[in-house]
Nucleic acid binder design. Sequence first.
DNA 1: GATGAATGAGCATTCATTCAT
DNA 2: GATGAATGAATGCTCATTCAT
Lengths: 210, 210, 210, 210
Amino acid sequence: MKKNTHVIPSVVKDPRLIEQRRQQIVEGAVRLFTKKGFHKTTTREIAKECGLSIGTMYEYIQTKEDVLYLVCEYIHTQLEQRLQQLISEEDTGRDSLEKSVKNLFYSVDEMSPLIVLIYQETKSLSKELMKYVLQKEEEITNIFEKILLKGLKDGTISIDPDSVKLMAHDIIVIGQMWAFRRWALKRFYTIDEYCQRQMSLIFEKLLSRG
Amino acid sequence: MKKNTHVIPSVVKDPRLIEQRRQQIVEGAVRLFTKKGFHKTTTREIAKECGLSIGTMYEYIQTKEDVLYLVCEYIHTQLEQRLQQLISEEDTGRDSLEKSVKNLFYSVDEMSPLIVLIYQETKSLSKELMKYVLQKEEEITNIFEKILLKGLKDGTISIDPDSVKLMAHDIIVIGQMWAFRRWALKRFYTIDEYCQRQMSLIFEKLLSRG
Amino acid sequence: MKKNTHVIPSVVKDPRLIEQRRQQIVEGAVRLFTKKGFHKTTTREIAKECGLSIGTMYEYIQTKEDVLYLVCEYIHTQLEQRLQQLISEEDTGRDSLEKSVKNLFYSVDEMSPLIVLIYQETKSLSKELMKYVLQKEEEITNIFEKILLKGLKDGTISIDPDSVKLMAHDIIVIGQMWAFRRWALKRFYTIDEYCQRQMSLIFEKLLSRG
Amino acid sequence: MKKNTHVIPSVVKDPRLIEQRRQQIVEGAVRLFTKKGFHKTTTREIAKECGLSIGTMYEYIQTKEDVLYLVCEYIHTQLEQRLQQLISEEDTGRDSLEKSVKNLFYSVDEMSPLIVLIYQETKSLSKELMKYVLQKEEEITNIFEKILLKGLKDGTISIDPDSVKLMAHDIIVIGQMWAFRRWALKRFYTIDEYCQRQMSLIFEKLLSRG
DNA sequence: GATGAATGAGCATTCATTCAT
DNA sequence: GATGAATGAATGCTCATTCAT
């Protein structure tokens, strides 16, 4: 089922327990990483924060980097689920896009510290693990690519087919910038204003030749 | 002259020497930080790379963090200069914007690893120093804000005045994403294609009701 | 019956089971210790290698050191049995010595990694346990002492009585060196050559006064 | 000059200082390793014992294993020097051998704990470093090979030329066994007796055929 | 002003052993 | 009797920073 996912070995055998403990680990780690960053958080702090002894924590991971990977995967999965959730086969491409972009903006707003975390710490992963995280990032981008293509097919969106991929990236980035530029943007815009104004940037382009 | 800039104390008195040595330090550090990141680079490595002894290097900085700050400031200054350089009083807002956005895209392309560095390591700075770096980031954004306002005034750009700040941020982010999403984008677009397609996104919006 | 042997306590009551499980443990441990050494082998690895769970293994031993002791005892017992096996009351001392020395050489050849193991890891035992192992080593040496004394008595061997103990040690050491100096010797001698030449050292005069 | 020797990198540049500090390290380490063995000695203990801070010690070595290597090299060099020292071009092979074997026995007696250390801990080295140590061991053996060959040439020693290598190894091992079997031998022999009796094994006929 | 040896707190990780089930 | 998850003290090693020369 789970594909394109790195499997972190565990000494412990019971898969239920592994899932549960790793959930604990991720939750503790997220709290610390968003506060202090990956490098400034020690493994002992993570263990303490998630209520495990350091020894026990290491039964479920192999290295500190694994924790970061689990965290990145968790964040991406959260975002992906939120986005998939609102997608309906019955919507036109246009409607679906509108819903999804709005959904993206508000999701990023709620997940703000997590989005920033991904932006800042992905590079702390090894090449190997980074590959998986970037793959997932691309899959999330593909959600919007698919919607755009649907709209292109059903005639509700007009866009140069060669710009579809780029527009998908633009949407993602414009969504995420609400998190990573929040320090500047929040002084001038609420999330509602932000959403509305950016929507119009995206949709005027897409409907220009309507 | 230099405003909004944190002054790093130095034991050494001669300002010429300070400038020269810090230039060395920044150049060495940039090479290492872009390759291995800030945390994985040691002060010894920096000293070696820039041809100073570790002791001497510490005569010109106080902490390793100072090096990162100098690097961030250097990168921002580089980018700012490139952008300022092409701005002429005589251009219309519209023309100036076109020139500057194009300039931004190609500058980001050339400075790609530096832009990524800023994105990833700014958060490694202390609150205090980060403030200065974000201020500078904002100043760079302001360059585009000013151009948009000029176009608004001279009638060559049509945009809701309340969207000006946001559009300036959008421009910056769309420019920088060519660096921080390069891993995905370069598989589908050249910098020329990228520039052209993103320009049309920005300008169709800005000229819609022209 | 078993004398001069340290009795390792076990939680388990059934002596048959204890014997059987400990045999498993020794066999697994020998494989690992000869490959990686005592210190670099973990208890988990031993348990896995011998097909027991770590918990079960600890029902039959008390500490990791116990495993090493069992291994040493096992190796010594192996060697002792091989040597005792070929000793016959009817042989003259001279004949018995010849048979036994040859037997020693070929036994060491076959048990090479085990002999090396004893040489290298005995010192990892506690004083207490080391005493037992060295005692056993001495008992094995005594086998040759007895043979020499028999030859002295029956006139088939001529040796200063005060040198008997020493000669017994010499024989053992010359036998074992085929194992612990194998890295050098095997480049120049086969086991057959080694046996023949060392036999002649022991049995004949070595250097005539030219 | 120094050949077949692994060069351990040091952060420190001054070669004099490196030599001096490494001497300190070796002396401290020898004291601890002979008492507790390599594995049970911690790097902190070594540092303390040799009067350096742990950080400083690591300026002169790279890993704990390096310390063991330095120690092995030191011991071998000590032994080699002692042996080389008494070798004179003018002696006959026979005389040189007699002197050198006696020298070996008394050297091993004095260096007893060091010889045992080499026997027990060489295997704790990595393949790479062990190679160098075994090479040195072989060079020491070669000292006796050369003497034997000299005696063969000048007619003062009669031995099958193909047994020369083996005899050299025998001499070394018989010498060293005074160290590694001391626990048993010292109960029955003084070093003087040991020397005399083993000399006669080597130099005269061992067992006449009744 | 330059040098680089010294420092030691701090960190990630391991592993023998226990004990509740 | 068997299991294997939990424990945490212990360890090898790093590295930013200082300061005597």
